[in-house]
Computed example of a mutant assay.
Amino acid sequence: MDKLNLRRELISARASLTPEQLRSNATNIRETLLDQPWAQMAGLVACYWSIGTEPDTHGLVFALWKHGTTVMLPVLREDNDLDWAVYDGPDTLAPGRFGVPEPVDTRRGIDAIRTAALVIVPALAVDRLSGVRLGRGGGSYDRALSRVGPNVPTVALLHEGELRDDVPAEPHDRPVHFAITPVGLTSLK
């Protein structure tokens, strides 16, 4: 299946999830992630502020922040690359490009992700064999992941059925090390 049709299929499946399923998925994913030693020890985490039917990260970001972790969230630039700024509580977000909440903190630059001890990224699907993730098609996270060191855990958050064997890959696609679904953690690559 090509990327465009797979994206359509996955977005349609997400649209059928009930609010109860979305809440339950978010809780299970958050608990699984926070249970990992590499998440508990990470002093600086790059994450994202979920929108729509993405696995919800609002509670995760808040929990990491309350634990004392510095959390950077992306700021979408005009060229669709990602700048980074620090989250400092729920009152420090403002609508950015396309209305997605972004931190109002000082921009740290596109290379700030290099300093993260853990990187959490959105995905519509992840290939269980190669770790290649399927995003929304803008390439923002592939560019960001290309800046992350090889030993830094990279994690995609998914709903059930989004860890697959058929994710198409192109040379610019960057794999992740782990996928977390509501049923648990999967190590990739």
Rank of each mutant, 00 (worst) to 15 (best):
V126C: 12
L93T: 03
E162V: 13
V86Y: 07
P150R: 01
E78C: 09
E160H: 14
L134S: 05
I113T: 07
L158V: 10
G135S: 09
T115M: 14
P74F: 03
D81Y: 03
D83Y: 00
P150D: 15
T106M: 09
P122W: 01
D88H: 15
L73H: 02
P153S: 12
G137S: 11
D127N: 07
A123T: 06
E78I: 11
G99L: 11
L124A: 02
V71T: 03
D111I: 06
A125G: 07
D91N: 13
A117P: 00
V155M: 03
A123D: 04
G96N: 10
G109F: 09
A63C: 06
V148I: 12
N80H: 15
P122D: 12
L82T: 10
L163I: 06
V121T: 15
E102F: 02
P95I: 08
D105K: 04
V121S: 06
R108A: 13
S146H: 11
L93F: 10
L118A: 08
F98P: 00
P122K: 01
A125L: 04
D91G: 12
H58Q: 13
L64K: 00
D91T: 15
G89C: 11
A156M: 08
V148L: 08
D127W: 06
R164D: 15
E78D: 13
T70D: 12
R128F: 07
